[in-house]
């Protein structure tokens, strides 16, 4: 019996020493901002968080970053927001897991008077109306970003070029926006022979592309709605030995994709400026906490990165890398 108690005690202390090591020092008087990306397992959000951290340091405010461990989910974000409110944050910047999923979380913020800024993925107007809140949105338009890629294709590809589109998870707003942004530009110019969802995943992009290639051996262009799927597609194209024939455009401009663009494996990738969102988010939520007025909408911009401007973009990104 004594032994059991001893073990329990010992293991608890072990656990909590771990916690102590990982908790950054904290002083109460400072402004504390909660920052909730969808997840922390992809470069896009890590860059955003790094931008936010730099700005927070500059402004002398504290930043608490929490995200779901694997999948972005409304349930996990609600829990995080509840706990942040308990922990006493003064304001929250959030990338919602979906456009409609945050009703309950927003209610909690409203009830506790915690201001919110919406980044990257826009919260639906109906949701905001239902809660009765006005929330500033800073981010890019995925539709406009994808349209950049479409415009490039109009200029550089022949009419009727056989094209495949890899889309993200069905039902997600950003997946639809990216697809439509591209499609609406090119639909009268190229010949879209295949369109498949690869759920944002590298491996699914790879298998989907294999299937598309065997059905359409003379494919010329693949537009992948994120770089992960683009990289998967590239592997499949390489395996089929069609690298010269099939060009690939990705989205997100993650560092791996930028390297691939630089040595010519990928045609291009659409860059958004997640760090910019983080910076603007932290800057403005601080203003809001201090009672100043903030802008309701900021477009952080999007650009297609190709071999011509990849160097320049890499230099810019470097400052937000880990």
């Amino acid at each position: 019996m004594k032994k059991v108690t001893f073990y329990t005690l010992a293991s608890c202390f072990l656990i909590f020493n771990l916690i102590l090591c990982s908790v950054p020092a904290f002083a109460k008087e400072k402004i504390v901002i909660g920052f909730v990306p969808m997840t922390l397992n992809n470069e896009y959000f890590i860059t955003m968080v790094n931008g936010a951290r730099q700005k927070a340091k500059e402004l002398g405010v504290d930043l608490e970053v929490q995200a779901a461990d694997q999948h972005a989910s409304a349930a996990a974000q609600l829990t995080i927001i509840e706990n942040m409110i308990t922990a006493g944050v003064d304001g929250i910047c959030i990338v919602p897991s979906s456009s409609e999923g945050l009703v309950s979380a927003l209610e909690r913020c409203k009830a506790s008077n915690v201001p919110i800024i919406n980044l990257d993925t826009k919260i639906n107007k109906e949701v905001l109306d239902e809660v009765g809140m006005e929330v500033p949105f800073y981010g890019t338009d995925n539709y406009a970003g994808a349209a950049e890629a479409g415009k490039y294709v109009l200029k550089h590809f022949d009419k009727g070029a056989k094209t495949a589109i890899l889309t993200g998870i069905k039902g997600q707003q950003n997946a639809a926006d990216r697809r439509n942004g591209f499609y609406d530009q090119v639909k009268d110019h190229v010949n879209v022979v295949a369109e498949q969802s690869a759920n944002w995943e590298v491996d699914q992009g790879y298998t989907a592309t294999q299937n598309i290639l065997s059905a359409n051996p003379d494919l010329q262009l693949i537009f992948a709605s994120n770089d992960g799927m683009a990289i998967g597609a590239l592997r499949a194209v390489e395996e089929a030995e069609k690298k010269g024939q099939v060009k690939i455009i990705g989205f997100d401009a993650i560092s791996e994709a930028l390297n691939l663009v630089e040595n010519g494996d990928m045609l291009g990738t659409v860059a958004q400026y997640p760090a910019e969102m983080g910076i603007k988010g932290v800057e403005n939520i601080t203003k809001k906490i201090n009672g100043e007025k903030v802008e309701m909408h900021i477009n952080t911009g999007a650009k297609l990165i190709t071999k011509d401007n990849v160097k320049e973009h890499k230099d810019y990104s470097k400052q937000f890398a880990d």
Partner: peptide
């Protein structure tokens, strides 16, 4: 989460 321990910890 209240202690703001990073998610992977």
């Amino acid at each position: 989460q209240i202690l703001n321990v990073p998610v992977y910890f």
